[in-house]
Nucleic acid binder design. Structure first.
Lengths: 178, 178
DNA sequence: GGCGCCATGTAAACCGTTACATGATTCA
DNA sequence: TGAATCATGTAACGGTTTACATGGCGCC
């Protein structure tokens, strides 16, 4: 998935310091993880060096100065290119969620296609888990049952979202109301 | 989480070759991933070298010989030790599921405690996602909504399992009927 | 004949974490 | 006074993937 591109994508939400990026991932880190500072800061440096992001040092009072990064036009182009190139073979939930976080950078048809692809993929996994023969191993049974529950919940979520998004926007009821 | 211990744990289900291990993870790889052969084979070698697993070469007809690994007593001891030492700070879904797959190696109270701990942790994340203020960013809204749906589904699953497991086993309705 | 599956393995390259280093502020 | 939060950074270490290497079987 490339954490470099992901971090770049997060900068489209708002300009952020390394510390900010870490905080913004806190709520979902149990699903996607959160990069350590040891990889985060170097990544921001390299984005800045390559001209994909610009850095501003913000001195606010007596607090330690913050280095705030903003995505540049070049960065937006690079991100768009990367987002549009095939996301096939990315089957993991983590990769899905990371891209989902960057949904603002997708066209509406692009987002719909993305969710539909995900739906098809998860449905495959769900089926594979249902078909499984009985195992005697408790752990395996629990794990398969858990996987089935998560797959089912994800498919239900995708159905809901696709209905909301794909429905031609009625008055005051577009993407905004999600 | 240490893939080495995880692989060792999988060998408690049945004796397996490297190829078998990979296949057995196929159905859940979208949630926990699957190690590449480049890490899997060396891991099995090292387990064998350390006496935690024994290796048998199986020649079946004209097919390429398979190297089947079996966990040893020393391996079981090492696994148990590792399973009982603190699993705190492991908050990720992946780590949870990996340990869940090894549930057969836990005592019933140990399993219950594990599920309860997980419940408490996921409930925290669920709450954090609910409390979140409104964001204008579509991706963030989608991602948070997705996270909320997954957290809710997982909590429901944990409730169901805890009810099944914690209930004093009635006639013919113990852990087996999960 | 070519493709895909079975089956194992090695080495280099890559990426990320861990540990260390610094320093100010706020709260108990 | 000590701990937690804010805030940034480097270097070594470790683990994983990627790419390469090999070889037989069965199917279209």
């Amino acid at each position: 998935m490339s954490s470099r591109h992901f971090i770049l994508g997060l900068l489209t939400q708002r300009s952020m310091s390394g510390y900010d990026v870490k905080q913004s991932l806190e709520n979902l880190c149990w699903l996607i993880g959160s990069p350590s500072f040891g990889s985060l800061y170097p990544a921001l440096h390299s984005l800045s060096e390559d001209g994909l992001a610009s850095m501003d040092v913000i001195h606010s009072g007596d607090k330690p100065p913050r280095k705030v990064y903003t995505i540049t036009d070049k960065g937006r182009k690079a991100l768009e290119e990367w987002l549009h190139q095939s996301m096939d073979s990315e089957t993991s939930q983590k990769a899905f969620l990371m891209r989902l976080m960057l949904a603002s950078n997708l066209s509406r048809p692009g987002l719909i296609a993305y969710l539909q692809q995900r739906h098809a993929r998860v449905a495959e996994y769900q089926e594979a888990l249902q078909v499984q023969e009985e195992t005697s191993d408790l752990g395996q049974r629990l794990a398969y049952d858990y996987g089935l529950a998560i797959a089912t919940a994800e498919l239900a979520w995708l159905d809901r979202m696709l209905e909301k998004i794909a429905r031609p926007a009625l008055a005051g009821e577009g993407l905004d109301s999600i």
